[in-house]
Computed example of a mutant assay.
Amino acid sequence: MVRIPRRFLIHTITVEAYLGRTSKGDRYAAGREVACLVDEQTRLVRGPDGDEVTSTSTAYAGPEEQAIPPASRVTLPSGRITKVILAKRRDGGRLGTPNHTEIQLE
């Protein structure tokens, strides 16, 4: 399995996994740091419900970072707090392209 080389994962984000909604509001797991490459570029993406959503940033992390549910809270290196639209595993298969997780952010 070819993966993104660690030398490209130059940023660190803090991910608080979304646990659900309660009568007191949204619940999140404790924050954990994730090594990644952050690309702050605005683009149109499809959310988990199929609707088009504007993504202002994308983080590229190792393939092991797949358990990031939509609506999880993310703190970017700049300090900006945003939410996950969708985290997708990208598998290069036999093409030799790096396997990784693409985290699309609001």
Rank of each mutant, 00 (worst) to 15 (best):
D26V: 02
D26M: 02
D26G: 00
D26F: 03
R27D: 01
R27Q: 03
R27H: 00
R27M: 04
Y28M: 04
Y28N: 05
Y28H: 06
Y28R: 01
A29K: 11
A29V: 06
A29L: 07
A30L: 08
A30P: 15
A30Y: 08
A30S: 13
A30Q: 14
G31N: 09
G31S: 07
R32T: 15
R32W: 01
R32M: 07
E33G: 01
V34D: 00
V34H: 01
A35I: 02
A35S: 08
A35Q: 03
C36A: 08
C36Q: 01
L37Q: 12
V38C: 04
D39Q: 13
D39M: 12
D39F: 12
D39E: 14
E40R: 11
T42E: 14
T42C: 04
T42W: 13
R43T: 15
R43P: 15
R43A: 14
R43K: 13
L44I: 09
V45M: 06
R46I: 01
R46Q: 11
G47I: 06
P48L: 03
P48T: 03
D49Y: 01
D51E: 12
E52G: 07
E52D: 04
V53W: 04
T54S: 06
S55F: 07
S57G: 06
S57W: 09
S57T: 12
S57R: 07
A59E: 08
Y60G: 11
Y60I: 15
Y60E: 14
A61L: 05
G62C: 08
G62V: 04
P63I: 04
E65T: 03
E65V: 07
Q66F: 11
A67F: 08
I68A: 10
I68E: 04
P69M: 05
P70F: 13
P70Q: 13
A71P: 00
S72P: 00
R73L: 14
V74I: 12
V74L: 00
L76T: 07
L76G: 11
S78E: 10
G79Q: 05
G79D: 05
G79M: 12
R80P: 02
I81K: 05
I81E: 15
T82C: 05
T82H: 04
T82M: 03
K83R: 15
K83C: 03
K83L: 00
V84D: 06
I85C: 02
I85G: 04
I85E: 01
I85F: 02
I85L: 05
L86F: 09
A87H: 00
A87G: 05
K88D: 13
K88F: 00
K88A: 15
K88R: 13
R89C: 13
R90H: 14
R90W: 14
